[in-house]
Design a protein around this nucleic acid. Sequence first.
DNA 1: TTCTCCATTGAATGCTCATTCAATCATTTT
DNA 2: AAAATGATTGAATGAGCATTCAATGGAGAA
Lengths: 209, 209
Amino acid sequence: MSGAAPSKLTRTAPPETRRQQLIEATITSISKHGISGTTLTKVTQEAGLSLGLVNFHFESKDALLAETLQHLAKEHRNLWTSKVWRPDIDAAAKLQTIVDAQFHPMVCNRRKLSVWFAFFGETRHRKSYLQTSGAVDMERQMMTAQLCSEIIAQRGYRDVSAPDISCTLEGIFDGLWLNILMYPRLFNRQAAREQVRSYLALCFPEDFP
Amino acid sequence: MSGAAPSKLTRTAPPETRRQQLIEATITSISKHGISGTTLTKVTQEAGLSLGLVNFHFESKDALLAETLQHLAKEHRNLWTSKVWRPDIDAAAKLQTIVDAQFHPMVCNRRKLSVWFAFFGETRHRKSYLQTSGAVDMERQMMTAQLCSEIIAQRGYRDVSAPDISCTLEGIFDGLWLNILMYPRLFNRQAAREQVRSYLALCFPEDFP
DNA sequence: TTCTCCATTGAATGCTCATTCAATCATTTT
DNA sequence: AAAATGATTGAATGAGCATTCAATGGAGAA
């Protein structure tokens, strides 16, 4: 890193600043118009920058979209990875951290959820998706499966399977995301979080009372 | 209605036949190329028909997309609505019918799931989505909530809430759909069906042994 | 100050696409 | 058979788009 971004309002700015501005504007545009309705003209207008800047700071429109998704994936991942490796936290609390990350306001809001599902729906981008956030999804599911195993082993639960629970959890996560996006009056972050907790209480009654 | 569709291979065909062909080709195209990659040229080539036919049989490309989604929504709805009103079937079996519909091969395959999530991701079409399949989603959730209430009342279950379970079920349905679409090696219809059954067994152990 | 180096601008380019429509073909009616 | 009706075709049209690039602007180096 060469230095911090200048806070002054200058015409020119370091490339990293412009890239972040364009990525944020892309998120906004996709959330408003979908991927097929997102044009470089709309993105640059949203960012208050001129049309040509995208192809100066990014290789192409596709590259901008791919990096936008990477940005979201990293942001999400950062919410839980730090705590999950700490030895002083027990498995149930770590699992709760992953759940909290899933429904954290920074990630779980209609603006960002729109973008996630826009990418999920675009086969053209699935390849780049599988390389970035797909890896993050896998990593998270491996981790929840691991944590469930630990919980089961420690408490000696019967009739529950760690891989099954982690699969169902993945399902509930994505499904509640979709429903929060589509039906915000019926579904919201807090209720979703509690629904997941109810599910975990059914699986592990002693750890999630 | 003038008459039945001719089975002979003729150059001309009744409008309804062409409309169905074009809708099927649209499903195929969206599953292959996404919504933003679906052009009328690709759709008509897929259908083996000429370019101009779309605007003859449909008002516009957008109308074709909207009717494609309606087609999927009806097809899905038809899988469970007939059984659910029969008085000779108990609530748990009706709930199982809804679960089976969700993971029926006719609905739950990668070709069709691609299209569902392509629409979920497109804000441009979300309005038309809410008017068609949104209504179907609501209807299904109302029904599962109703059936859960009946099960709870009949068996006298404690510590479970019908609205919560129906919300979680909706979440699991959509989430497993997404995971089957994205990660077909880890998720499949049969396993998904069993995961839902495990969840229902946790909620209603006496009805889903 | 003057020079140099990037960042920035937005008009121009060339491409893709939805839509139109005049012409053609098939079927039904008279 | 001839006319009328309706379906089909695909080239032409024009709008919108990503990308390019020559010109301009501004910040720091000399």
